[in-house]
Design a binder for these strands. Sequence first.
DNA 1: CCCTTTTTCAACTGGATGGTTGAACAAAGG
DNA 2: CCTTTGTTCAACCATCCAGTTGAAAAAGGG
Lengths: 118, 118
Amino acid sequence: MADQLSRAFAALADPTRRDLVARLAVADATVGDLAAPYDVSLQAVSKHLKVLEEAGLVSRSREAQRRPVHLEAEVFDLMTKWIERYRRQAEERFARLDAVLDSLSETGDPTAEEGTAS
Amino acid sequence: MADQLSRAFAALADPTRRDLVARLAVADATVGDLAAPYDVSLQAVSKHLKVLEEAGLVSRSREAQRRPVHLEAEVFDLMTKWIERYRRQAEERFARLDAVLDSLSETGDPTAEEGTAS
DNA sequence: CCCTTTTTCAACTGGATGGTTGAACAAAGG
DNA sequence: CCTTTGTTCAACCATCCAGTTGAAAAAGGG
């Protein structure tokens, strides 16, 4: 799973990680702070943050012993752009309501151009 | 992984499934059509479509022996709304941070000249 | 220097996932 | 009927992933 988009989607597929993102949107926080509300070990949360970091969704700095976690907006943009592109395409096709289904079984024509099928 | 958002993000974490979505945005297609370009088995593609279907991203109808696959826009909306909510929140916070950095005087010490005030 | 706090690393475990092959089911069509 | 076409089911395998516990590293503070 090399590419960033795959890592980002996979990172947000976990409810705990989405919750971490939601809380980081409010304020930066340390690993300990973030782990407190959950009933899993601190190490587990540290792993979740590593996944988010490798996806480029968060970054970490250093401040004494602490490692404050900060949300990075850029990759979120990547994701919405990807999703919106195809959602829009699908909706436009839905709006046209052309006779795509007719062309599927015969003539092998990949691009049906029936305009006024109704 | 019960909830829809988790299933949707997980579904799009796979490059093959994202490619399927991209192609389905152009036109509905059958499993066989969709499987053709890849060098994996048709059963593997069928499994991918099942994942997309259980995430609510596609639906399938019946047409003779074929099962045309159709993209559903609704869950894509759910995803973008989730992402955009926190991205916006994070960006607003970032904008406020800039404002704070402009007026550096803060927290007790009025002669705050620590740091590289370049 | 030890000691404390905060975080990460290492090794292990159970369960999900993506892939395979082979058989079965569903719906025409000879 | 039996065959052909399109799709799914079942069983299996390798790998990945989220969780655990225990030890170690990093950075200050007494």
